[in-house]
Nucleic acid binder design. Structure first.
Lengths: 182, 182
DNA sequence: GGGCGCATGTAATGAGTTACATGATTGA
DNA sequence: TCAATCATGTAACTCATTACATGCGCCC
């Protein structure tokens, strides 16, 4: 949602004033694993925050480099940050999962094929989990809680797909049942 | 994503041809817990599926009731369904979680308040979990896998927030630490 | 005749992305 | 001088939602 992106930008600018490019770099390098925010969208949002009075922009130029707009949070923005943060921490927004739709219709495929596809998904999840674990050591400890959050959800996803694979296996042809363990 | 909504509509129409209102009712009553699809959006998507040749519409009127457009899947639509289903089952799309953003800045609140807010969220999650469990018995067995999916993710969410609450508790004032157990 | 249910939409808006445009500096 | 990096944006588009519009039938 929009509010979370607003919270993110305000929170980052609160810690340190920045220009757009710098902010984008930071997000791309440090937060790509938990937020999805395109560069132009960030510029667009910064502009909006500015129009709403939550941040102030000041044009600056350093030597002969291209001019940059430095954004810093305003007192109204600080209030907004507090409000959004409290809201975010206290609320729970039920998610929708794309996986659910497929599962509703899954039984319309032959068990063998269905199994094959679900095993592919399983591999994809495991691969993603491995990269998350790697981040665990490479990123600063401030990210630990976030990474653990992702790992827990990934484990939930694995548990679920494993159950599905197990129940489907009992309906599949004997050859197909064993492919994963070979 | 769009593709999953397309898959959903095609899958439902594949099982049984329907008119828009009927489809909307079905989704609202049987699937509101796992998909979020507004009525006008459904009409809009049906129209789009029609223009793309995946479904055919036929105007029908029963007695004197308002006329309705009955949609049924075409052979191209059937192919599309197969393709989307296979794609959905085999792929894993990493999620982004709104909760992550709040946690990144959580330590900027006083531990007492942070705790209070996280406990509120915990309650909200538990409440939602209870309604999910209730669905478990009230909905047809075809939904079992989907509900279990949600329950697993909800449990992950609870485990996570409990850990956060536990670590935060050690920094909070003694009175605040115990509020939940009273 | 008044309100509810059936049935379909449109118009306006918002949120976000993609692809492109611009122009300067730096280093090979 | 050519490519890469720094830095900012716009224009066009898609997707989805909200709020509203319409009109008939049915039942009290």
């Amino acid at each position: 949602m929009t509010m979370d992106r607003q919270l993110l930008l305000l929170g980052l600018l609160r810690a340190q004033e920045m220009h757009g490019y710098q902010l984008n770099e930071f997000i791309d390098e440090q937060m790509n694993f938990c937020v999805d925010l395109k560069r132009s969208t960030a510029y667009y949002l910064l502009d909006k925050l500015c129009r709403d009075g939550y941040v102030a922009e000041e044009v600056e130029r350093e030597g002969n480099r291209p001019e940059r707009k430095v954004y810093r949070i305003t007192p109204t923005g600080e209030e907004r940050f507090q409000e959004l943060l409290r809201q975010n921490l206290a609320a729970y927004e039920p998610s929708v999962y794309a996986e659910d739709i497929g599962i509703i219709f899954e039984h319309q495929l032959a068990p063998d094929e269905s199994l094959r596809l679900m095993r592919m998904r399983r591999e994809a999840i495991l691969a993603h989990r491995a990269t998350m674990e790697a981040l665990h050591v490479s990123l600063p400890p401030s990210h630990t809680a976030v990474i653990e959050h992702h790992l827990l959800h990934l484990d939930a996803e694995i548990t679920w797909i494993d159950r599905l694979i197990a129940t489907r296996s009992s309906h599949a042809s004997p050859q197909a049942t064993d492919t994963a363990s070979s």
